[in-house]
């Protein structure tokens, strides 16, 4: 069992548990089941002062057996309105999860990158054209209210 992936994932798990205090935007990052280190879940918190504020966004992370040479597969399981996230499948368009991946990254840094993607959308390579079009037209009020609505609809289950 002690393949390179498992060793590395164990290390990451330990490091994550130790540094849990230093991650403000990451509520949770752990394997779905303790005995399967190749399937993780995470919960991102919407940054304060953004349209995503108050939302909890769940991520599903699948680690390939050739990790860290190949990137993990990550998608949102919570519906989220974002120009670079597919509204239906939750697929994320982020260069570091595809072509720009390097083995020096780890799950924690990837989650931080996704968290910063939420506040810094890239409308030039959209997966959600409607949101991207609003941004490209400069309709920040429309965009923000749309995002706020979807955040309230899908990412705040407790308040409903």
């Amino acid at each position: 069992m002690s393949t390179a992936v498992h060793r590395r994932m164990l290390k990451e798990y330990m490091a994550i548990q130790k540094n849990s205090a230093t991650r403000p935007h990451l509520e949770l990052l752990e394997p779905v089941q303790e005995d399967d280190l190749l399937h993780w879940q995470a919960i991102l918190l919407g940054t304060a002062d953004s349209a995503y504020e108050g939302g909890k966004f769940h991520l599903d992370i699948v680690i390939p057996s050739s990790y860290p040479i190949q990137p993990p597969t990550i998608h949102f399981t919570t519906k989220i309105c974002h120009p670079n996230v597919h509204f239906k499948t939750g697929e994320i368009c982020l260069d570091i999860l595809k072509s720009e991946w390097t083995p020096s990254w780890n799950l924690e840094s990837v989650c931080v990158a996704i968290s910063s993607l939420l506040t810094n959308p890239e409308p030039s390579s959209p997966l959600n054209c409607d949101a991207a079009n609003l941004l490209r037209c400069g309709d920040m009020a429309g965009y923000n209210s749309l995002v706020k609505m979807y955040t309230a609809l899908f990412a705040m289950p407790d308040e409903e």
Binding site: R7, L10, K11, M14, A15, K18
Partner: peptide, 10 residues
């Protein structure tokens, strides 16, 4: 798991 996992944060 029997192997020894070490980390700089030790």
């Amino acid at each position: 798991m029997d192997f020894d996992i070490t980390d700089p944060s030790d």
